[in-house]
Design a binder for these strands. Structure first.
Lengths: 145, 145
DNA sequence: GGAATATCGTTGCACTTACAACTACAATAC
DNA sequence: GTATTGTAGTTGTAAGTGCAACGATATTCC
């Protein structure tokens, strides 16, 4: 029990944390500066965009973007105030609510996407070599189970 | 400009974000429950422990743990109140301050470490195969430059 | 059918964090 | 040497987030 981390393991873990912190901070700042859109909002908008009917139950959306329910309630409030998302009630379950991407939301996303994609590419994807991307994707899948 | 992400790239990036969010949340909760120590505090304590003289300038410490200066000021305040860290003034630079790990801080760290290492191992390191750890470490280094 | 239990989304509250402004000091320019 | 500019750390303030508790509805069990 409690096998020590060797140097490679320690580097893999601490690098993971440090890289994430730095990248997310930079990408968030970049997105806010260029489009007034925080990364967390961008994340919600893309998730909704790729959902069937551009809509998702609050619960499922919270899971997808890894946010607490209350956190998502507030985030959707903010996006609603800007007209990027609306709420719709759920027919099958009267407790439930959908968050729905509006046309304005889709446009805001289309505007912001090039900036963000470039940012991710230069800071992250460009460092991937050979089969790195595939291996990483498989790694996250293994961890997720 | 703006080359589209392919499926592997998208998976590598989104998995990176989602995995980080989930892992950090779980590890933080685990550490708080078992030792009353948030992950951010743990991070400061280990960083100090492995620094020469168990001390670091506030500025350097903030960089290491990827926190803003003001954020670090408050975090060191909290750790100081619990007696895990003290401040010392800097001789060469009268503006400067060191954060120094106390013996109590070192003990708290020693207590918490097994819990945290087990958590990291079962959630992250156990999923690494073959040369994964080494490759990851190299990847973070490439990204960092 | 009715009671107990679980789930959905929201709210009150506390906590953590970042940004901007500030003071104190250091380094550079002239 | 003095003026300018830069840096270290702290503080006021505001934003974002999670937890616990809540009202409303669903589901399960008898």
């Amino acid at each position: 029990m409690g096998k020590r981390m060797d140097a490679a393991e320690l580097g893999a873990w601490r690098g993971f944390l440090a890289t994430h912190a730095r990248l997310v901070r930079e990408l968030d700042e970049e997105l806010r500066a260029a489009h007034g859109l925080p990364l967390s909002s961008y994340d919600v908008l893309t998730t909704l965009e790729s959902a069937p009917g551009r809509r998702l139950r609050m619960r499922d959306l919270a899971d997808e973007v890894v946010l607490s329910r209350s956190g998502l309630t507030r985030l959707v409030d903010r996006l609603g105030r800007e007209g990027l998302v609306t709420r719709e009630e759920c027919e099958e379950d009267a407790r439930g609510a959908f968050a729905v991407l509006t046309d304005a939301g889709a446009r805001a996303l289309a505007d912001a996407r090039p900036t963000h994609h470039d940012g991710v590419r230069t800071r992250f994807l460009d460092a991937l070599e050979g089969e790195d991307a595939t291996r990483l994707r498989e790694l996250w899948a293994r961890i997720d189970t």
